[in-house]
Nucleic acid binder design. Structure first.
Lengths: 152, 152
DNA sequence: AAATCTAGTTCTATTTTAGAACCAGATTTG
DNA sequence: CAAATCTGGTTCTAAAATAGAACTAGATTT
């Protein structure tokens, strides 16, 4: 064989994104980070992930600029893992997955966590895709335009 | 060891979503399906995926209701893989990943594919999260409210 | 200073992945 | 219609990733 395939040079931004966060654990780690989790042991017990896996995932995400480490905010000698600007950019991807999961992966009456507006506790609105003029676009009203060849 | 951990009964919709499509290939298969790819060999050559992997991925996605098979539309005896309603629901998740990839994973001047409005070829608008009253919400203006215990 | 906690690393068994080789049935070509 | 080729797989193997247990060093608490 060879190595696991790399998508890091793909023309398609979706492929490049998946190259960074397209494995089982990364988005869950990032989800927890959005909820304020920062310490190794918090991630570990919260996710139920093996420590070795967590260790390599945190290192990879830091190397790829999604997380960064900082001295622990409680003054101890340990460190914390914090989302970078790049990492925070994944917020809507996680919201979109949440919305899909809510819509399609629960049986009637089954409870799940929800995302609310901190200001008043209301549910957030559903995500939608708009055209440049504000019309809501369905999937089949859009099209992927391939990258033109780079002209030097 | 045991098996790879299952998230299919998680309280968090993000976790359940990742249980279904949280591996390297699934979202790329689905992305291609949104662009009209339907046949085994089209997926295979387009993605450069091993046939064995593709075979199991397509079967899994079909079992989980993301894809369904149908007789080939060209009248041949082969079959096609088509997105179900559930599968089409992943559109915004892919758009969100695309947006993140575009924002963070290309060097200046590097070309990539873009998503456009089929009606006029314009770029689609950026996704944003709104509150119930239409205010745009940033990640830190939201909060996850855990599922209440099911009361029987 | 002993005990415990934190954040790992290391080790092993199992599973997954990539890719090549093979195959049967469908389709096309001569 | 027979041979060649195409389609959509399955099977096999080697390499890599994963899960989990055991171990560890340094920090913190008792």
């Amino acid at each position: 064989m060879v190595k696991r395939i790399s998508l890091s040079e793909a023309d398609c931004p979706v492929a490049r994104a998946l190259d960074v966060i397209g494995d089982w654990w990364s988005l869950l780690i990032i989800r927890d980070a959005f909820e304020g989790v920062r310490r190794f042991s918090e991630f570990q017990t919260g996710l139920g992930i093996a420590k070795g896996m967590l260790s390599t995932r945190l290192r990879d995400l830091a190397e790829r600029g999604v997380l960064e480490t900082a001295p622990a905010s409680d003054g101890s000698a340990y460190k914390e893992y914090i989302l970078t600007e790049r990492g925070r950019g994944l917020f809507l991807a996680i919201v979109a997955l949440r919305q899909w999961g809510e819509d399609h992966l629960y049986r009637a009456g089954e409870r799940h966590s929800v995302l609310v507006d901190r200001a008043n506790g209301d549910l957030v609105a559903r995500l939608e895709l708009q055209a440049s003029d504000g019309r809501v676009l369905a999937w089949n009203e859009t099209q992927v335009r391939k990258a033109e060849a780079e002209s030097g």
